[in-house]
């Protein structure tokens, strides 16, 4: 009896436990499912319009294998380092957790940089968004993914700052879990872009 009272009085009313935080994680999965439907509509648009090049550049002429392979390896590796950050969180190593988030952010920045460079290269070759229905759908799909990655970078940085200030506690742990899920989800979408846009593109 005494032990029970002690446990209750020890709890701070303004903080809730991990069980409460889990509801936010479930809510975030619901967001991911609806975000997937957004990408579904962009993929459908791309697949319908990919052959409508209006005499302009085609997929096979545009895509360069080393560029999109580098993008793929950067994103796959960043997903792995984000997983290592999760492993550090499970072990309660706050410093390692922040370190792996930093590596993930750097890989993400490299990915976004190469993608922006890719878009600039295409545009300078005359393959702008306005050129054909294929290019409109291409920039809409790959650009939306790139925007998601950019948002993910900002999110991971803000979570890392909170972890530096407040260390690992239920709230910060949940915030990293959601940001990590988002990051892996972006890799899931990239796998589909890699297969449907780039690989099938170079096959012609």
């Amino acid at each position: 009896m005494e032990a029970t009272e002690k446990t209750i009085s020890d709890q701070k009313p303004q903080e809730h436990g991990m069980e409460e935080e889990e509801k936010y994680v479930l809510g975030f999965w619901l967001f991911l499912a609806s975000d997937l439907v957004l990408f579904a509509s962009l993929f459908a648009t791309y697949l319908v319009l990919r052959t409508h090049t209006d005499g302009g550049p085609t997929e096979a002429q545009l895509f360069e294998i080393p560029v999109f392979m580098l993008e793929t390896f950067l994103l796959l590796t960043s997903s792995y380092t984000c997983g290592l950050a999760m492993h550090a969180l499970k072990n309660g190593h706050a410093r390692r957790l922040i370190g792996w988030i930093a590596v993930t952010v750097l890989l993400g920045l490299a990915f976004v940089g190469i993608e922006i460079n890719e878009f600039i290269t295409y545009s300078s070759e005359g393959a702008t968004m306005q050129r054909s229905a294929f290019l409109s759908a291409f920039y809409a799909l790959v650009g939306t993914h790139g925007l998601h990655v950019s948002l993910g970078i900002v999110w991971l940085i803000s979570v890392a700052i909170q972890l530096m200030r407040k260390s690992i506690q239920p709230t910060t742990a949940r915030k990293f879990i959601n940001a990590g899920l988002y990051w892996h989800f972006l890799d899931v979408v990239w796998v589909m872009i890699f297969t449907v846009v780039y690989l099938m593109g170079v096959m012609g």
Binding site: M18, G92, I168
Partner: peptide, 23 residues
């Protein structure tokens, strides 16, 4: 994992794993 974080995962100060399971 969840129960261990609830137990107080102040890894920054202690540098100790929350439990031996995931080390």
């Amino acid at each position: 994992f969840y129960s261990r974080v609830s137990d107080g995962g102040d890894g920054m100060k202690t540098k100790e794993p929350l439990s031996g399971k995931y080390t």
